[in-house]
Every structure is written in structure tokens, then in C-alpha cells.
Design a protein around this nucleic acid. Structure first.
Length: 810
RNA sequence: GCCGCCAUGGCGGAAUUGGUAGACGCGCUAGACUCAAAAUCUAGUAAUGGCAACAUUGUAACGGUUCGACUCCGUUUGGCGGUACCA
């Protein structure tokens, strides 16, 4: 009887479905384990072989944890709003809901064919009104808490996409070749900045890749310093506030710079400079961020006005330049060319004095005429802080500024508020109406969800309005509370909205009264293991943390953080070591692989390819190897005629057999439990084990049962089938994971390496745990070793228990 | 520019965390089975020299620490990811 993977896989996938094998319900008798994949965007192309890598890894963990006695939550759903479906709809006139549903069906079929142990009864899709009702509801909570507001600000406008983008999304779109320009528009914002400090501090309690935590830290961009007020020279001319991280360098501030958008410019510019300043401002306005970035040379113009340096009352010129950004700090800086790269460049170009106020400590040298000294050191030429180290000097200056009312110590973040509206059709509508008198009103809870209209024209209309704005019968409505005429908000939420809280909905997907039942939330949360690509390091993972913290503050969730452990699976490249893409023609479709080798081969091979976190190329030859391996296991148990191999007998495993079994259980268990999820070495351990069993004339049945259990998380269909063939009924999914006895892993006799001056010269056999001195004595009796030490002086003898003896000779 | 990660046979990758470098798999070579092929099984496979035992070299490069370094430290080179005037 051949290994008929097609038949076996179909049989067990049907079995799991009809028996609801993986349905998860609360069970207080068991510890819970919530293992989650980042839910996919169901694209029309379907899965490629990169997708199953993460899904297989989490599935192995899920199946392993079940066998370890955990109550496992392992759900799947669809992050289904998204631009591709909308663009396709514009082209074809087919409603995005229809194309998206088609893609979902295809994804679901593909995922099921991999044999994932998912509780499909919990399936959710962000485009389902029953789901986005609660996305809208959460927005209402944000609004009520004062965390959502509308603002006319300079936003990132992408003309090709016809929408605005969040700061976090800009780099990605620029990389794709789209242009992004700054443009003032009225938009919905979420006050994520209010949570900056907590989003930063709580990173410390997360078991996440350090690189991802670091990226979030950089994105938050916390810096400590001071705000300082500079009076503008002249009678009653007002003042300029700046932020600096180096208040200790105040004595070195020889000029000031305002961002070109700074509101004070028009007030302070002297008549003879107005023309030049206006030209510069106009230029800056028309430049995109990209253009600004690409300019390496500093530019700027003098306003004609002067400010007074509060520490020494010197008058310093006020310039404007686009190297100062309106969006950070106060939009104005004090420039210290001696101790800041950018100020140094600017001052050198425009011949502004450069003053040294910090000297390096120790033997380090600095020459500020050649380059700025930007590190910490000791203050010089700095009045009352002269001679103090930077740390102390900062504190003293801040104290002095506060005492004199000239400034105060503050903390500044790079993080800006989250631009939360998009000019798209295919997204969650806001539960907001605009009254005729201009007031903005939240709709009452009982009218949710605000549904998208049924239309057949999705063309982007001109100047930055959502396609929804053109659907007057939808836009014009009445206030359900007063009956007065009102217009609906026509922007929609960004794709991130639905993915900010989906992990909570999985716990209670059909609840019509709450977004999640509190008891269920308390039992299942937090997510124990979250698997997904590193490309979401600052976007999804940051936004979801923010929403979660808001929900925590409102008492709706019980944990501070949603995902305690995060793992990024690597990318699988095409066989040519390039990124898989349609245009390169190197995309491998899992459907084909499954048809040729079966899902178990696909799963096993994806794990065997290399470390889970690594980027690695696909290999068609490689999958032949694991396919052969699975065939070998099949033949080990099942004969040609379908009967069980007669070599498998009901005897106890003893001696070396028993040792191999315990060693394999130990190695595989350790590798699964390892923080790094070393599934590639798990597979190789299984291969070694099978190779060993193959050599036996009599195979103790326990060896085979252990093999079947050990392989069941990796190749579940094969395991189920063999389990049944070996006389069991039902599923293997909840069998107890095999245990090992460390004492039984130990060898009786071990090979000891004999080294002379660190070079391997011989090997001897010795009893396990032979004491060091005995080991050295044994080694010296070895013939080869003797020939090396004869006539030489022994300088040193080193023994490592059960490992080696090294003899140093002269 | 700055920050982070990485570099091991023809290929994907192992290495008990400082103790036999190259596990396991792919590929390749030879043999068995077969009329033949496929499948399967057996043996070999880092390089150089040698019939062989064996010797020498070898984990991007150079240097250091150590009885002993793929592993630790320093310098350099190459690749990947992030970020970019954030005061």
C-alpha cells in the first residue's frame, strides 16, 4: 500500500471538520494558550508558498500545546478592506465586496488544504458589517474619550492613490514609486501622542524581537531637554520659544532658525528682507518632503530681526531655513554651530560665528573650526556652568531657566498624532454626521453599523474627497436624535482600523451586544504567541497596542499589552533567490506543491528550509527530500499489502533503542520550546531517529508510537493515518506528548577526544562520568597520544568531563 | 550619514553556547536490484597531497585573548533590514 497523501489528507481534513476537533471553548481546568497569526489580506492572487511558513509554525505550536494539555485558541480571519479591491472595482465596475469574497473563499480553501488546526467557527472578516459595527463602536469610545478630533493640517497627500497617508505609511509608498506631497486638509486624527510614554515604557515588558522594539522606540523618538524663550530684540517685539536637548550649549547659540511655515516670520521680518523671505517661503511650500530630503546643501535667508540670548544678553540673528521642521518641537531652534552638525554646516556656509562651549574630556581632541563636537564633555566659556560635565551642566541650566521664568525642562517626542481618515470607498464609514450649523455629531450606538452604500461607481472624484461624497442619497441623512438634516462623514477609516482589535473579536465572534464578552476576554487574553512579518513592526503592531491601551483604560480589556510574545517569520524567496513576484515568474503556488507532494511534505519542508526567522530561497529538489522521508516513514509502518510491518513487535525498548527514543523526545521537545522555534533541527532529529529505527530487525512498538506522536504537529495527516493503522480510534491531536527521562539519554560509554596542544590527535572510549584525573591517565595510555608526548615536557593537562583531554607539551 | 542584524562545503543549513567544524537534507560519484528505467537500498563526498594509514590547510579578511575560538574582543570588507535634517 502506497503513501497516498491525497486520500489521507482529504480524509483527515474532513474528519477534523465534521468532528469540530479544534473548536476551542473555555475550560478552567486547563491552562490556556492563545496562538495567533497576523490575519492575511485576501489578495486575488491567492497564497504563495511564503504564507504557509508562519501558519505552519504556529500550527505546530498549537498542536504541540494541545498535546501538552493546554486549551488552545488558534483562529483565522481576513483583513479584507484594502486598496487593490477598490482599484479593481474602479476598473471593472464589480463591487469590491464580491471580488473580496471570492478571494476570501480561495484563501480559505488554500489554508484548509494545508491542514491547519484552526477553529474555523471563529472566522471573521473586517468587511463584515457585523464586524465593522464594532470597529465603529471602538471609534466612538475614542471620540468620547477625546482621543479623536478633526484638524486642518498639512497632511501627506498621494495624488496617484487619491488619498492621504499616515506618517507611518509614507516611506513604503515612496518606495513603490508614488509621490507624496504636503498639503493642508481637514482630517480625522487620533491622539496617539497621549500614549507615547506608555507605548514606550511598556515595550520593556514584551518578549519581542529587540529590533522591532528598537524600531518602535525610534518611532516614538523620546528626547529630554528644555524649552527656552528668546526675546526678540526691540521694544515689545514678542518672543520665540525653542526646544533643545542641549541647554548646556546656550552660550554657544549664535543665531536662531525658524521653520519656513513659522507664524512669527511675517511679524518679525524687516522691510528690506521681506521679498527674499517670501520667495524662500513660497519655494519651501511647493517642495515635497522627498525634494527637501534630497537637498544636501543647506539653504536659508536672514529675516533682518535679532533675538536676545537669555544667558548672556547677546543679540543673535534670526534666519529661516527648511532644515527646521514646523512639525517637531516648536518649529524654531537656537542654533549652536560649534556642537551640532546641521548648525555647523549652515553657519559655515553663511559665515555665522562658531563658538566653542563644550570641550571633550580625557585625551580626546576637538577642533570646532574643522568639525562640530557633538558629544558630551565639559562646558567652557559658559558662565556659571563652566567646568561642569554635560549631564550636570544641563541640570543646572534648566534649574536656572525655571527660576528666572525663561524656560523649563521638558520631554519631546517625534511621534505625531495618527492621521486616521482616508478618501476611499472601501473602508469603514465613520459613525459621524455633520449638521447644517457646522457641528460634528457622533451617531448614537443603536444605529450602528453605518453601512457602506450599494453603488456601482467607485471613481475617485477629483480633489481629495472620498468617492462616498458623490453618493448624495447616502450622504444626505437626518440626525436620528433631532430629525434635523445632516450630512454623513464621507471619509473612511484606514485599513489598520480593522486589524487593531481583531484578536479580541476572535474570542467572541458572534456577540451582538458587546465587542467581546468580558469573561471570555479575561480567560483568553493576552495572546501568548503572535506570528507575522517584520514589515508590520511600526504600523499594525503600534496601532494595535495603542487601541488596546485605550480599551484597557476604559476597562474593556484586562491586560496592558495585547501580544506578550512576538515572532517574525522570514521571507521565502523564489528558487532564483529573488523576491517572489509575478513579473519575475518565480512564484511557487502551494496548490501545485500540495498536488504533487501533499500538504505534509509542504509543511515539513517549509520548516526544514532553515531557521524560521531567516530569509531563504525555495528549492524544488529540497521538497523531494522530505517527501522521500515521509514515504520512508510510511513504509516503516505499512507493508505493500496494507498490513503492519512484522518487524514492529510488542516488546519493551531497551538499551540503545530506549536511549535513542529518549534522546529524540528530548531534542525535539527542547527545540519546540526554544524561544527561537528551531523547527529545522526538529525535522532533522526526526530523520535521524527514523534512520536509526530503519536499521533495526525488531522494532519495539513504542518507538513507532513515539515517532507518530512526535511527528504529528509537523505532518498531522500522516500521523493521524498511522495512528489509526496502529489500532487507535479517533484523533491523535489530544494524545499526551511523549516524555523523556534525562537519565536514559546518557550514554554508558562516551568518546573522549585526545588533544595535543589543542589539536585532535586521538579518540578513546571511556565510561560516562569518569573523573578528570582518571581520564587524563587513560588518555596518556593511548598509543597515538603516547607517541606525541614521548620525550616532551608536559606543561599542562586539561580534562573536560565526558568530552576531551588536552595535553600541552613543549 | 546613523542604528540594528548577518557572513560556515557545489547548495539549504547544523554545532550541546568556549571543547571532534560541516549534523540533517539536496546535489554529485560508485555499487546492488532490473532486460531497461523509475523507485528503493548500500557506500563515498570541505580543500590539498597520498594506494592507504595519515598529514596540512580551512567557518568573509587581518590581528588579539585562551590549553583550546565558527563561538569572546578590536579593525576592515561585503550583504540585508530600518531610518533619515526630530534640534
Amino acid at each position: 500500500m502506497k503513501y497516498n497523501f491525497n486520500e489521507i489528507e482529504k480524509k483527515w481534513q474532513d474528519f477534523w471538520e465534521t468532528n469540530k476537533t479544534f473548536a476551542a471553548e473555555i475550560d478552567h481546568a486547563k491552562p490556556k494558550y492563545y496562538v495567533l497569526d497576523m490575519f492575511p489580506y485576501p489578495s486575488s492572487e491567492g497564497l504563495h508558498v511564503g504564507h504557509p511558513e508562519g501558519y505552519t509554525a504556529t500550527d505546530i505550536i498549537a498542536r504541540y500545546k494541545r498535546m501538552k494539555g493546554f486549551n488552545v485558541m488558534h483562529p483565522m480571519g481576513w483583513d479584507a478592506f484594502g486598496l487593490p479591491a477598490e482599484q479593481y472595482a474602479i476598473k471593472t465596475g464589480i463591487h469590491p465586496r464580491i471580488t473580496t469574497q471570492k478571494s476570501i473563499d480561495n484563501f480559505k480553501r488554500q489554508l484548509k488544504s494545508i491542514g491547519l488546526s484552526i477553529d474555523w467557527s471563529r472566522e471573521i472578516a473586517t468587511i463584515d458589517p457585523k464586524y465593522y459595527k464594532w470597529t465603529q463602536w471602538i471609534f466612538m469610545q475614542l471620540y468620547k474619550k477625546g482621543l479623536a478630533y478633526q484638524a486642518e493640517i498639512a497632511v501627506n497627500w498621494c495624488p496617484e492613490l487619491g488619498t492621504v497617508l499616515a506618517n507611518e505609511e509614507v516611506p513604503e509608498q515612496i518606495e513603490k514609486g508614488y509621490t507624496v506631497v504636503r498639503r493642508p486638509m481637514k482630517q480625522w486624527m487620533l491622539k496617539i501622542t497621549e500614549y507615547a510614554e506608555r507605548l514606550l515604557i511598556d515595550l520593556d515588558m514584551l518578549d519581542w524581537p529587540e529590533s522591532t522594539k528598537e524600531m518602535q522606540r525610534n518611532w516614538i523618538g523620546k528626547s529630554e531637554g528644555a524649552r527656552v524663550t528668546f526675546k526678540i530684540a526691540g521694544e515689545n517685539s514678542g518672543s520665540i520659544e525653542v526646544f533643545t536637548t542641549r541647554p548646556d550649549t546656550l552660550w554657544g547659540a549664535t543665531y536662531m532658525v525658524l521653520a519656513p511655515e513659522h507664524p512669527l516670520i511675517d511679524k518679525i521680518t524687516t522691510p528690506e528682507h521681506i521679498t527674499a523671505v517670501d520667495i524662500y517661503k513660497d519655494n519651501a511650500k511647493n517642495k515635497s518632503d522627498l525634494e527637501r530630503q534630497q537637498e544636501k546643501d543647506k539653504s536659508g535667508v536672514f529675516t533682518g530681526a535679532y533675538a536676545v540670548n537669555p544667558v548672556n544678553n547677546e543679540e543673535i540673528p534670526i534666519w529661516i531655513s527648511d532644515y527646521v521642521l514646523m512639525g517637531y518641537g516648536t518649529g524654531a531652534i537656537m542654533a549652536v554651530p560649534g556642537h551640532d552638525e546641521r548648525d555647523w554646516e549652515f553657519a559655515t556656509k553663511f559665515h555665522i560665528p562658531i563658538v566653542e562651549v563644550v570641550k571633550p574630556t580625557g585625551s580626546q581632541q576637538s577642533d570646532i573650526t574643522k568639525e562640530p563636537f557633538v558629544e558630551d564633555g565639559v562646558s567652557v566659556n559658559s558662565g556659571f556652568i563652566t567646568g561642569l560635565k554635560t549631564e550636570k551642566a544641563k541640570k543646572k541650566v534648566i534649574a536656572w531657566l525655571e527660576e528666572k521664568g525663561l524656560g523649563k525642562g521638558t520631554i519631546q517626542y517625534k511621534l505625531r498624532d495618527w492621521l486616521f481618515s482616508r478618501q476611499r470607498f472601501w473602508g469603514e464609514p465613520f459613525p459621524i454626521i455633520h449638521m447644517e450649523d457646522g457641528t460634528v455629531k457622533l451617531l448614537p450606538e443603536d444605529v450602528l453599523p453605518v453601512m457602506l452604500p450599494e453603488v456601482d461607481n467607485y471613481k475617485i472624484i477629483g480633489t481629495g474627497e472620498s468617492p462616498l461624497a458623490g453618493i448624495t442619497e447616502w450622504v444626505n441623512t437626518t440626525d436620528p436624535e433631532t430629525g434635523k438634516p445632516a450630512k454623513r462623514e464621507t471619509n473612511t477609516m484606514p485599513q489598520w482600523a480593522g486589524s487593531c482589535w481583531y484578536y479580541l473579536r476572535f474570542l467572541d465572534p458572534n456577540n451582538e451586544k458587546e465587542f467581546v464578552n468580558k469573561e471570555l476576554e479575561k480567560y483568553w487574553m493576552p495572546v501568548n504567541l503572535y506570528m507575522g512579518g517584520a514589515e508590520h513592526a511600526v504600523l499594525h503592531l503600534f496601532y494595535a497596542r495603542f487601541w488596546h491601551k485605550v480599551l484597557f483604560d476604559l476597562g474593556y480589556v484586562s491586560t496592558r499589552e495585547p501580544f506578550v510574545r512576538l515572532y517574525h517569520q522570514g521571507m521565502i524567496l523564489g528558487e532564483d533567490s529573488n523576491k517572489m513576484s509575478k513579473s519575475r515568474g518565480n512564484v511557487v503556488n502551494p496548490d501545485e506543491v500540495i498536488a504533487n507532494y501533499g500538504a505534509d511534505s509542504l509543511r515539513l519542508f517549509e520548516m526544514f528550509l532553515g531557521p524560521l526567522s531567516a530569509t531563504k530561497p525555495w528549492s524544488t529538489n529540497g521538497i523531494e527530500g522530505v517527501y522521500r522521508f515521509l514515504n520512508r516513514i510510511w513504509r516503516l509502518v505499512v507493508n505493500e499489502d496494507g498490513s503492519i510491518n512484522v518487524k514492529i513487535q510488542d516488546v519493551k525498548p531497551e538499551g540503545e533503542n530506549e536511549r535513542i527514543m529518549h534522546r529524540t523526545i528530548m531534542n525535539i521537545t527542547d527545540d519546540i520550546e526554544d524561544m527561537d522555534m528551531k523547527f529545522n533541527t526538529c525535522v532533522s532529529e526526526l530523520m535521524i531517529y527514523v534512520n536509526e529505527i530503519f536499521k533495526l530487525d525488531v522494532i519495539p512498538k513504542e518507538l513507532i508510537l513515539t515517532l507518530v506522536k512526535l511527528i504529528s504537529p509537523f505532518a498531522p495527516h500522516l500521523a493521524e493515518e498511522l495512528w489509526q493503522k496502529l489500532g487507535h480510534t479517533g484523533t491523535i491531536a489530544f494524545e499526551k506528548w511523549p516524555e523523556f527521562d534525562p537519565a536514559k539519554v546518557k550514554k554508558q560509554v562516551v568518546t573522549i577526544i585526545g588533544q595535543i596542544n589543542g589539536k585532535v590527535r586521538s579518540k578513546i572510549e571511556a565510561d560516562t562520568d569518569t573523573p578528570d584525573d582518571k581520564l587524563i591517565e587513560l588518555m596518556k595510555q593511548d598509543e597515538k597520544i603516547r607517541s606525541y608526548i614521548e620525550g616532551k615536557e608536559i606543561v599542562k593537562e586539561i580534562a573536560v568531563k565526558n568530552k576531551l583531554v588536552n595535553i600541552v607539551v613543549k
